[in-house]
């Protein structure tokens, strides 16, 4: 069954659903980045606040780049290759770095 299904369009729309899952995740990271920016620049811009804001924006851009890379890979073929462990780990490291920024800002 899988042999014929691979050549045709997947009726379960798996690549499309995965693409949308990446989109939802970039949306979540955008909300986090906006909250981070608000926290960093709260009470007037300070040099520490600006650095933290720039760092969080950079992490958000890195996240967008990772998601875009994967979305393009998903769209390229009918049966896309599985996600690479390095790719998944990079996404996780972006999230953890944002949390570390939050730690520095909150305390």
């Amino acid at each position: 069954m899988s042999g014929e299904a691979l050549s045709a369009r997947d009726p379960g729309l798996q690549p499309e659903r995965t693409r949308l899952a990446w989109r939802r995740t970039t949306l979540a990271s955008t909300v986090t980045a906006v909250l981070a920016g608000k926290t960093a620049l709260h009470g007037g811009p300070s040099s520490f606040g600006i650095v933290a804001c720039a760092l969080c924006s950079g992490l958000w851009l890195a996240f967008l780049a990772l998601a875009h890379h994967r979305i393009r890979a998903l769209a390229a073929t009918a049966s896309p290759a599985p996600l690479a462990p390095r790719h998944a780990t990079s996404v996780v490291l972006c999230a953890i770095a944002t949390a570390v920024c939050a730690l520095a800002l909150v305390v």
Binding site: T25, A28, S29, V31, T32, L35
Partner: peptide, 11 residues
């Protein structure tokens, strides 16, 4: 990410 955003939001 929602939990991390929640941390910012509490602050």
């Amino acid at each position: 990410l929602a939990l991390i955003g929640g941390g910012f939001a509490v602050d």
